[in-house]
Each structure stands twice: as C-alpha cells, then as structure tokens.
C-alpha cells in the first residue's frame, strides 16, 4: 500500500506537483525551468528510521523532497525529520548523485488547505517552503528555498490555466470512477486485437499495468474480486449489450462498425457519469 492513497485527492496533488517538472506550456513548468527532473516517487529513506516523502526531484546540484498535502489537519509524524536526510542516505538507497556538492531541500505542496496547515506546522517547528497549487502556483509560507532559482520562480504568483497532467493515472486504491475509464479502454483494446474472451484476473492485471507486479498476492486477489463486482455492475447497467460471462470467462462484443463503437463509448461515458456518490468507493476497499 502506498502513501499516495491516504486521501481522496492526494494523487491529484502528486500529479499537480509532478507536472511542474515537465516542459509544458499548458501548465506551469517551474521545476523543469529550474533544471529539476523527477528522481523517485515515494522513496523510503532510512535516516536510520524510515521516512517516506512523496517525491524526490533532482537537479544538477540540488535534491528537493516534495511532500504533497491534501488535508487540513494531518501533518504526519515524520515530516520534521525530512530535513535530516543527508546525501549518504540517498547513496545507501542506490540513488545516483549528480554532483559532489549536492544540497538537499524540502518543500510542502498543497491546495488552499495549506492556509489551514500553517499554524500546525509552525507549532511543530516546521518551516519548509509551502507552495500552493490551486488557481495559481506560489509560495505562501515558510522559509526560502535553498535554491535561488526556485525562490525566484515560486515567489511570483503564476496562473494555472489547466488541470495538471496525468502522470500517475491511478493507484490500486483509487475510486472506481478513476479506474473505470481504463477498464473500458482495456476492453476495447482486447476487442480490437482479437482477445475479447478473457478471465477476470487477466483483465485486472492488464488494467493495473505497471502497478500489478508491485502488489502482493492477497491484494491482487482482492482486486480481482473487485473487478468481478465491477464487471457484474457494468453487465446489469449500461453495458448489458456488450458483456457476457460464463463463470470466470467473460467476453466483450461490439459490432465492427464505428457507430457501434461510438454507442459503446457513449454508454461507457454514461456509466462513468452515473457513478453516484454511493459508488464512489475506493476500489480497494470495495462496496
């Protein structure tokens, strides 16, 4: 279980921060401009007790730990210790060090919840730079970044014109609404490539993609069960004309005509829209 899953929009904030490290015009590219690249997501670093920051970015001479905060209350017991990480700890973890004089820094990123977190952070003696990513991106509280380039970039309020890029699509515990589109694309991909008959486990593995191998067996089995429930739900609702099953073997059938595919797309969109609040369960936790 990764700590990207602890709050509903935590993954959104992670994506919002990751997006800063790509060379976009449609989204602020502060970290890219300052020369930072994504090094690790959720590195576990022993100093010697483990800490687990959300993201580590690395430039030619700086490392930046980014902690993504979605809530108004929870700070996390280890956040204060992020400042204690030294280069030797990264080396121990097999992370490439780009320069002899690498300096490390920490930043807290969030939405308007950061306004509420300020007091608690101060109480705990944490004064890392705090950057709000909402309608604008800007440092609002905390000490300066050690990197003057970041200071210059984050000191100015810059409008965020679009949603953040989708670097991480979902995690295994994301709400079903976030995973459903990728289940539908997997069904369509299977249909096109002549693999329209499938076992639920195979479908689940394909949908989860890169994540699958990182999950332990029991979690994989739980996800397969959830997928079965999801498919049954699809079959009884908008996708009744397309899905069939006999025990664990399912099939998807859509006539090979663009109008039929369009209809399937419309039905999938309707299904996604109609996932009401009751259905906004976390995929992992189930209904």
């Amino acid at each position: 279980m990764t700590n990207t899953d602890q709050s509903f929009d935590h993954l959104d904030i992670i994506n919002a921060v990751l997006g800063l490290a790509y060379n976009f015009e449609s989204y602020p590219n502060h970290l890219f401009k300052a020369g930072y690249k994504l090094s690790r997501i959720e590195p576990i670093i022993g100093i010697p007790d483990s800490i687990n920051p959300d993201i580590l970015f690395m430039s030619e001479n700086m490392g930046l730990f980014a902690e993504c905060k979605g809530g108004k209350i929870k700070i996390g017991s280890n956040l204060r210790r992020y400042d204690s990480v030294q280069v030797r700890h990264l080396i121990e973890k097999g992370i490439d060090i780009p320069t002899e004089s690498l300096e490390l820094d920490v930043g807290i990123f969030g939405r308007d919840n950061l306004i509420h977190l300020k007091e608690q952070l101060t109480e705990k003696g944490i004064d890392y730079p705090q950057v709000i990513l909402d309608k604008t991106v800007e440092q609002i509280h905390g000490r300066s970044f050690k990197d003057p380039k970041l200071n210059a970039l984050f000191s100015e309020s810059v409008e965020i014109k679009s949603k953040a890029p989708l670097i991480l699509k979902f995690t295994h515990s994301s709400p079903v609404k976030k995973i459903a589109p990728f289940i539908f694309t997997t069904l369509m991909s299977r249909l096109i490539t002549g693999r329209n008959k499938f076992k639920v486990r195979d479908l689940t593995e394909e949908v989860m993609g890169d994540i699958w191998d990182n999950l332990d067996k029991s979690l994989q089995n739980t996800l397969v069960d959830k997928m079965k429930k999801f498919l049954r739900q699809c079959k009884t609702k908008q996708l009744t004309n397309y899905l069939k099953n006999s025990d664990d073997v399912w099939s998807v059938d859509i006539p090979d005509h663009w109008k039929s595919r369009k209809k399937f797309s419309d039905d999938c969109n309707r299904f996604i829209r109609e996932l009401d609040q009751k259905d906004l369960f976390y995929f992992f936790r189930g209904v």
Binding site: R40, I41, E42, P43, D210
Partner: peptide, 17 residues
C-alpha cells in the same frame, strides 16, 4: 512507464504537448 526501484518508483518518459 512506472517501474519499481530499490527506493521508490521511477517514472520514465513524458507526455507530448
């Protein structure tokens, strides 16, 4: 792609704009 490393996950590649 997203791969697991000894220390966290590594994202390779980038979107086109």
């Amino acid at each position: 792609s997203l791969t697991k490393s000894a220390c966290g996950q590594v994202v390779s590649g980038s979107p086109f704009e």
